[in-house]
Design a protein around this nucleic acid. Structure first.
Lengths: 111, 111
DNA sequence: CTTGACGCTACATAATTTGTAGCTAAATTA
DNA sequence: TAATTTAGCTACAAATTATGTAGCGTCAAG
């Protein structure tokens, strides 16, 4: 067991650690936006539709502590672990597209 | 394109819809806790370490609208789509365990 | 009837997020 | 060398979101 207990769970199980960080706004998005290489703080901010620097920095700190993101000379980038996790987000992207097609085969909007 | 625009993204791309809902507290957890079959509202509440009924209900509404969760005679359960997505969370669980072992091979705690 | 379990709402308090402004430091340009 | 630009990041009030507790209306069983 590692990382200690987290919000919403007393166990500190790895999946709960992940749910804790990923269940906060912008975490998933940050990992996603770093998929094609490093981005500076400001570029990342722009990529994330102008998320506030406050949260962005808070998330980046957390993601770095968890060893998923690092700050290099060209900006923020995913670590090997972060990249590994990121690949699953790519899968999720493919899944989401198929899901949307299924939910919406003729292009009508859902509320 | 479907589901319309969401928080944090103007495009309404399926992955952004997913990031929007999953990036809110308890969403991932709810999908996770429903992995072994239906749970009543109250059982789900207990499984989620006592998340407030207010958020729980808000999330359940959203997840139902997205066609990921449904309410049946035995309580809340994942739809076929929700189950499909849930399988990826099971992958994530396996990944998270390996990740924790890597980050923490001798059992020391991280902050 | 009363009891208990169900889904769910109300509402005040607390925590999180936003948006904007601006700081310090290092590199670049004039 | 002085001015400008770009970098990461902080401050802080306003707005949004979550928490915790109480309890409502419905229904089925005892």
């Amino acid at each position: 067991m590692s990382f200690g207990p987290v919000r919403g769970s007393t166990t500190g199980r790895p999946i709960m650690v992940l749910f804790d960080i990923l269940g906060q706004r912008w975490s998933l998005r940050i990992l996603w936006e770093l998929r094609q290489g490093p981005l500076t703080f400001r570029a990342l901010r722009d990529a994330c539709d102008g998320a506030s620097p406050t949260v962005l920095n808070t998330r980046l700190k957390a993601l770095r502590q968890l060893g998923l993101v690092d700050l290099g000379p060209d900006g923020y980038l995913r670590t090997a672990d972060g990249d590994d996790l990121g690949k699953r987000l790519a899968d999720l992207d493919r899944w989401a597209n198929a899901w949307a097609d299924r939910s919406d085969p003729e292009g009508q909007q859902q509320s």
